[in-house]
Each structure stands twice: as structure tokens, then as C-alpha cells.
């Protein structure tokens, strides 16, 4: 495999990817695989499974690049969404739940609000999320890392949907401030 030394701007890269250019795809992998790997591990802290998912994610990117709409957002945002969805799909799958030793905990993840992840398991962005105050942490955990909709969360936590919405937004603003620092 040739290591791509060339650099592309995003517009060029997307255009080449849409033509299924191998060198461009190689460049994409070299530049983004470790970022996406970290994001997947944040949701699903299992080394082997995360690598399987990462490969699936790049296969999806290769296959679905024609569906990527530049006007809707940056390429990385699109890839991150694919990675997050794939990781959450796996998290929700029976296979994963059955393989987990602390089965009861992950099954009850919603009511336990993400406390199934011990702090030592937590890496990356999720570690920052854990520094937020409890009522924010719970919402970010459930929505971003476990993939529940705001509606699901409102029902489960017995909080009005409006409260979930505003509280989640505040949590994200605070998270953003923490990142920037």
C-alpha cells in the first residue's frame, strides 16, 4: 500500500472520493482512522470490537460517499456520525450484550444513566463528559454515547421533553467550553 504523501483540501478530497479514487481513500484512512477509532472506543471500550467497527465504518464510507452532501456539513462530521451510529448499533445488538460479563448493568444502562462505564474504562471525549455535573452528564451519556432520543430520555427519566431539550443544550455548551480550554 502506497503511503499517500499528497495533501488534499477537503473539496478535492471529496471529489476524488466520489470517483472512488484509491489514493484519496488511502489518504482519508491515514488522516482520520485514529480519530474515528478513538470516537468508537469512547462509545464501546472493547479493542477487538472497536477495530471491527472501524473497518465497517470505512467500508460504509467507501460505499456511501456518493450520498454525502457537502452542504449538510463537513466530511469529518459525516464520518463521525457513521462511526457513532455503527458503535451504538453494536452496543444495542444482542451479541454485544451477551458477550459482556456485566450483562445486567448494560441492560439496565438507561435507568443507571451510563454508570455502567467505570471511570477507568472511559477515554477521550467521554472523560471530559464525566467532569460535567451529574444532571448534564446523564443527558450527554444517554443521548450521545448510548444513542437514546430526547423523547426516550424524557420518558425514562420522567422529565418533560422541554426540560430535556434545554438541559441537554446547556450541557453541550458547557462541554464545548471545557473542550476549548
Amino acid at each position: 500500500m502506497l503511503k499517500s504523501l499528497q495533501r488534499y483540501n477537503e473539496e478535492e478530497l471529496v471529489s476524488l472520493l466520489k470517483q472512488h479514487d484509491q489514493a484519496a481513500f488511502s489518504y482519508l484512512y491515514d488522516n482520520y482512522s485514529s480519530s474515528l477509532h478513538g470516537a468508537i472506543l469512547g462509545i464501546l471500550p472493547d479493542t477487538d470490537t472497536a477495530l471491527d467497527i472501524l473497518q465497517e465504518v470505512f467500508v460504509k464510507i467507501w460505499k456511501q460517499i456518493s450520498a454525502y452532501d457537502v452542504s449538510k456539513g463537513r466530511l469529518f462530521t459525516w464520518m463521525l456520525t457513521i462511526a457513532r451510529n455503527a458503535a451504538i448499533d453494536m452496543l444495542r445488538s444482542k451479541n454485544w450484550k451477551n458477550n459482556k460479563r456485566n450483562n445486567e448493568l448494560t441492560d439496565e444502562s438507561l435507568t443507571l444513566a451510563g454508570s455502567s462505564q467505570t471511570n477507568t474504562d472511559v477515554i477521550g471525549l467521554r472523560k471530559i463528559v464525566h467532569t460535567l455535573k451529574e444532571e448534564y452528564r446523564v443527558l450527554v451519556e444517554l443521548s450521545y454515547f448510548e444513542g437514546y432520543t430526547q423523547d426516550d430520555i424524557a420518558k425514562q427519566l420522567n422529565i418533560p421533553i422541554g426540560t430535556v431539550k434545554t438541559r441537554l443544550r446547556k450541557a453541550l455548551i458547557e462541554l464545548r467550553q471545557t473542550i476549548k480550554v
Binding site: 485514529s34 470516537a39 477495530l51 462530521t77 471525549l125
Partner: peptide, 21 residues
């Protein structure tokens, strides 16, 4: 925010073992 997100993800990147590519 998208740029910030990309940058944050890069900061928390985890290298992928050789061979996966």
C-alpha cells in the same frame, strides 16, 4: 463547531494497529 469537533477527536485519537488498513 464542526472544526472544533474534528480537532477534539484528533486530540483523543487512538492509533490503529498496522495491518488493519
Amino acid at each position: 463547531f464542526e472544526e472544533l469537533l474534528e480537532q477534539t477527536a484528533a486530540e483523543h485519537a487512538v492509533s490503529v494497529p498496522a495491518g488493519v488498513k
